[in-house]
Nucleic acid binder design. Structure first.
Lengths: 166, 166
DNA sequence: CTTGGAATGTCAACAAGGCTGACGTAAATT
DNA sequence: AATTTACGTCAGCCTTGTTGACATTCCAAG
C-alpha cells in the first residue's frame, strides 16, 4: 500500500498486470452499475435503451432527436424505436421546434419523470454507497481516470453539458 | 482541490449533481473502454462476447465452462454459441477434465493468444494513456470506487482471481 | 449395480437492441 | 425552384441475451 502519491515511484501502476486489473474492474463495476435499473425495467416492457433516453432527456429537457442520437451513439432508426414507445406510453413528449420547425424537442412528461426518478434513485443509491465507502479523494481519482478514458467527442458531451461543474 | 481526505468536508461529493456526473462518467467512459477492441472485432465475425470469453480464458487457463458462465453472467446456451465458434475456428481448445471428466477445461490456442494479444494491447493502450494522464493517486481512487460499486459476488470474482495483487 | 444429480452440449424459438438501405414528408436554405 | 436537413418509418439482418426441452456423460450415494 503506502503509495507515495507523487508519481515518482517508478510507474508501477502502469504494468500490464495493473492495467489488466483496471480493465476487469471496469467490466465488473459496469455490471453493478446497470444492475439496479435493469431490475426495475424488467417486466415494464422497457430496457436499458429506454433508460438511457429518459436519462438524457431529463438532463437536458428540450434536446433534439439529433442531439440525442449523437449522445447515445445510435442510429435514428434504433433511437426511434425506443422513442416511439416512450411517446406512445406518454412518458416523453416531442414538441415541434419553435425556431426550426423540422426539429423535435424532447421533454419528459410527469409520468416520465416518475420513471426517471425511480431509475436514477436506484442508480444513485449504489453510486452514493460506493462514493461513501471510497471517500472523496478516491472519487476525485475515479472521475479523473474515467474522463481520461473517454473518446474526445464523448468527453465534450460529458464536460459541455454540466451545469454545476465539478 | 485541497481535499482533507478524511470525509469531513461536508460530503459535497455526495450531492445528486455529483452523483449524476459520476453516472455519466461511467456511461461515456465505458464507451471508450470498449471502442478499440470493438473496432478490431468488427469484420472478424466476432463480437464483444467473444472478446470477453477470450479475455477470461487467457487470464485463467483451464477454467471450466461453469466458471466462465458465472464470471460472464450469461446462460450456458449463450456462452456455448460463442465458445462453439471460437473452438471451431481453432482459437480455443476444450480439454476434457482429468479429475472430473464431465468438465471442460478451456485454453487458448496459439492462434487464440494472437487475437487476445491484439485485443488486450488495444485496450491496455487506452487504459495506460488514461492512467498516465490521471496519475497514480487517481488510479488508486479509480480502482477503489469501482470495487465498491460491484455486486459482492462480482467483487469476489474480481479479488479472488488476482495473482499479483494490488 | 443402479439411480439421482451435476456438468455439459445442443436444438428450437424468441426478444432486445444494434445495424443498413430505401423512401417519404415537411421545412429550411440556397 | 431546387436542394438539403431533420425526422419518421418500413423491411430486413445481426449479435447476444433469454427459456424450455432433451441427450449424454460421469460422479457419488444408496
Amino acid at each position: 500500500m503506502a503509495e507515495t502519491g507523487g508519481g515518482g515511484e517508478g510507474l508501477l501502476f502502469l504494468t500490464d498486470e495493473q492495467l489488466r486489473k483496471g480493465i476487469e474492474a471496469m467490466f465488473f463495476a459496469y455490471r453493478g452499475f446497470t444492475a439496479d435499473p435493469d431490475r426495475i425495467l424488467e417486466g415494464l416492457d422497457y430496457g436499458r435503451a429506454h433508460h438511457r433516453a429518459v436519462h438524457f432527456i431529463n438532463r437536458s429537457p428540450g434536446l433534439t432527436v439529433s442531439s440525442l442520437m449523437a449522445i447515445l451513439g445510435v442510429t435514428k432508426q434504433s433511437l426511434n424505436r425506443v422513442l416511439r414507445t416512450l411517446i406512445d406510453d406518454g412518458l416523453v413528449e416531442a414538441r415541434i421546434g419553435r425556431e426550426d420547425r423540422r426539429e423535435r424537442n424532447l421533454y419528459l412528461t410527469d409520468k416520465g419523470m416518475v420513471l426517471e426518478r425511480s431509475l436514477s434513485d436506484a442508480q444513485r443509491a449504489r453510486m452514493r454507497a460506493a462514493y461513501r465507502t471510497a471517500g472523496p479523494q478516491a472519487v476525485q481519482g475515479f472521475r479523473t481516470v474515467l474522463e481520461a478514458m473517454m473518446d474526445p467527442e464523448m468527453r465534450r458531451q460529458y464536460l459541455g453539458l454540466k451545469e454545476a461543474g465539478s
